[in-house]
Nucleic acid binder design. Structure first.
Lengths: 355, 355
DNA sequence: CCTTTCAATTTAACCGCTTAACGGCTGCTG
DNA sequence: CAGCAGCCGTTAAGCGGTTAAATTGAAAGG
């Protein structure tokens, strides 16, 4: 019901003063050619006088059934999206597509920050892009319930009736593992962040690894296991931290190395953590790559500056393609899957094992 | 009018099947405690059966008159917001505020990309944050017409009835100028990007400088002029490029130095351009700061890595405060002005003039 | 047995706009 | 001068909800 039924100008108040129908006023704003010049001028003048800024967007949207807005769902805090260079690059690509299609972008955080009112259910959008959320995320389920065109990025891998775009993480990671194996590494460790949205910290071996809700990390780990299995190694210690930060990377490296001083290589599953691990290794007096090989994943801009060996994926393209998939889905195309190429970018943080 | 009057589930279709009123169904979703357990269960079951995902956001918004969404207006392309580290830091801060208040963020590009339908007029939001737009931007005018709580960031400086947050650019810039003057510099040049949204490239001396629609650049230039005037210097050549990129910075430096080889210091009005200028200077065989002093503005993260002397402003805080201003405005507070502190961060790209 | 009280529902009045369909006029055409 | 377009504007049926206030019972109190 109305908060206040008087005062606010609207199509109706303008129409009333002028003695014309609301349809005419609406037309004056939306299809100026369907209205005589005289009437149009009077409408605009009266609107101006009343301080009426034009048709209410919400009402218009309700009536038209279209928003020209795309929703982007993040699992983490929204601010994380701007802290992670990989996410920023993705956003840059996505906004490029949006822009050319005249779409606005609504940033939605899945973070159940206290209140029940789900931001997802309230999002006034025509479709969604879902960025790397855990397989069982409740917000994703809610989005799928809304039956709007949806593009899933990175994870989950399998979502009925949605478009998908992402790299083949398992293959990329295996390629990295093969490079390390070829260099002679056999005792490799992994550091990673927040699999499955749980706030776990510590060792994460065995079963947990393979059922981690976050399929991105699961696949990256599996890829390494694949490469190791090929040379008969089944041992792959994993150290997990809740957040993807340099500090977490440093901390994870210390813990992992204390637990397993025999490791000759440590693979961070995200570049940021690798950067932290690099600092931590130097802190321990280890030189990289002579004493320890360290690798990352994603190939964010800073990786090149740090000389980090990492798995490269086309981050911006991923965003751009996500937008394009949405656009073509909206235009009636069937859901598609776009697998992006990855390659191992060898730089200076990798080398043969010590010994 | 309806695109299709049948088929789509709604409160009404669920209510009809159950033989209850739409109000009851609405309550089942919005205020579960106001409805008996039995009815609630039946409503939810029937909704599920029909594939009804809950009240339509647009309709809800129209009826409630509230969106819980904040609009963020950018003048440039949206993708630029993710290319400029200063904007990214701002966004990080803003989303932090948004998150804690349960707000979603709608990114809006002012870029009049072909179509007439202004994104601003269609934005379903409760308020706006306007990021560094030219004084005479038509979208800003349109936003003000909507009479929603609005926060202006950086520019324009004076906007009736809106909150404002930004640094004191003129003072910050003067402080920088004073540092250079104290070092002994008298022949200083400026390189800058796209003042007033115009796509101008070339020298930009005199009148144009002072009336540039973009008050940020205007003030930064004035601050330098202030510092130079104090030692009797009135000469301040300015070279302008359309975009804020490293390439533009490099190009502007070359042109400026070809025109005025006597300059001993060049101030870029934005860090990114300074970084480009740095590369260009080295390309010319100049060593910095021995042969030429180069400075930036904003102190983005990369500035520290490059050793760039620059004016530092709290970018993230600016975003956070913008969010807070919006929140308190919405809560009924009067519009406020928050001026942020700046300081000259001296690093290794500045030194005494050659000679 | 008659009130009260209170919880569970319904009623009904919005919210503000879009758009297909329709109709009165005016001016042209044959 | 009837017939026919077009132009302008109106009518009216949505779009899909929210919510204050009224209604209805049934349990509780006197």
């Amino acid at each position: 019901m109305a908060r206040r039924s008087s005062g606010r100008p609207s199509l109706a108040t303008v129409a009333a003063v002028l003695g014309v129908s609301t349809a005419t006023v609406s037309n004056a704003f939306n299809r100026p050619d369907r209205v005589s010049a005289g009437v149009k001028a009077r409408v605009l003048a009266e609107a101006e006088r009343q301080g009426y800024a034009g048709p209410d967007p919400a009402a218009r949207q309700l009536s038209r059934g279209r928003t020209d807005t795309l929703g982007l769902l993040f699992t983490d805090e929204l601010s994380y999206a701007f802290r992670d260079p990989a996410a920023v690059a993705f956003l840059e690509g996505l906004t490029t597509s949006c822009q050319t299609a005249g779409l606005n972008l609504l940033l939605i955080s899945a973070q159940t920050s206290g209140k029940a009112t789900s931001a997802v259910g309230n999002a006034v959008v025509d479709g969604f892009v879902v960025y790397s959320v855990p397989d069982d995320d409740p917000h994703l389920k809610q989005i799928l319930d809304r039956q709007l065109p949806t593009v899933v990025v990175d994870a989950p891998q399998e979502v009925g009736n949605a478009d998908w775009v992402g790299p083949d993480d398992r293959a990329g990671s295996r390629a990295l593992g093969e490079v390390l194996v070829a260099l002679g590494h056999r005792r490799i460790g992994v550091i990673t962040a927040g699999m499955g949205g749980m706030r776990y910290s510590g060792a994460a071996e065995g079963h947990r690894t393979l059922t981690a809700a976050d399929s991105v990390h699961r696949n990256r780990i599996r890829g390494l296991q694949d490469a190791l299995a090929a040379v008969g190694v089944t041992d792959l210690p994993v150290e997990e931290r809740p957040g993807n930060t340099k500090a977490a990377g440093a901390d994870a490296l210390h813990t992992l190395l204390n637990r397993r001083p025999d490791l000759t290589a440590v693979c961070a599953l995200m570049d940021i953590m690798a950067l932290g691990a690099l600092a931590a290794a130097r802190e321990r007096g280890l030189s990289v790559p002579e004493d320890l090989t360290i690798t990352g994943y994603d190939d964010i801009p800073q990786a090149a500056a740090a000389g980090l060996t990492t798995v490269s994926q086309p981050l911006m393209d991923k965003g751009r393609i996500a937008g394009e998939l949405y656009l073509s889905h909206r235009a009636g195309a069937l859901p598609r899957r776009r697998v992006l190429p990855t390659y191992v970018q060898v730089r200076t943080t990798s080398g043969p094992p010590r010994d």
